[in-house]
Amino acid sequence: MYDFNYRKATSADDAVKTVTSASEGKFMSGGMTLIPTLKQRLAKPSDVVDLATVPGLAGISVSGKMLVIGAMTRHAVVNGSADVKKAIPALAKLAGLIGDPQVRNRGTIGGSVANSDPAADYPAAVIGLGATIHTNKRTIAADSYFKGIFETALEAGELITKFEFPIPDRAGYMKFPNPASRYAVVGVFVAKTGGTVRVGVTGAGPCAFRVPEMEKALAANFAPAAVEAIKVSPNGLNSDIHASAEYRAHLVTVMAKRAVAEAAG
């Protein structure tokens, strides 16, 4: 690891200012992705700005039909939160499937969504629930946030502060985990709100995406059978030693079916 300047941010403004004025500044929340990256010398930031000391960045609240989760909220906290379990149980479950207990004690929702690893779990929920991402300067709709592999709508020095998740009538999340890392080979988040259904897929492509054909079929009939015959195209999907693009395409249908069964049950 190369050395860097380190600063405990005192506020969101302070964090943004430090990162933007540095020659190469980086926010750090849980460090569960950033520190391994630094160890491998895949990044060489001049300044690392710790968000753990920023007041108000962590926390969970429910306001009306919205579940609000602060960017610094750790996976273990989301997993154990009575508010999340009541409002969107599938989201609490998702958080509990990330990595292992030690990783969940550090990793945060903001870090995960900012990073947009193609195999990360939270992006499926952000897309599947149609969340709104709040930053230090604007709000971004989930549908225009994920741009590509490790690429998002965030600008340099833009800080995620919180997420607003609309509370659905029912939702389910199923993932086919990589047996070694537990990252999603494919994960599917399904949410039904009134007559509208959203299907968010992670792991399969360069970043999380929706499957409109499944959404339409599920809006007409919210049952596993409705998606059984719907296949996504393997074109452009990820292919690696863990799974070919064809296998991932197959898994999207299987995980979608199971997620619907979970949501319906």
């Binding site: 569960m32 207990p101 030690q102």
Partner: peptide, 26 residues
């Protein structure tokens, strides 16, 4: 040293954490 094995787990403020993946200054 890659956050996988757990040989380095210690408790920080009561919670188990992988000490190979947190900075001393944190």
């Amino acid at each position: 040293d890659t956050t996988q094995c757990g040989a380095c787990v210690v408790h920080i403020d009561g919670l188990p954490v992988k000490s190979c993946t947190t900075l001393a200054v944190q």
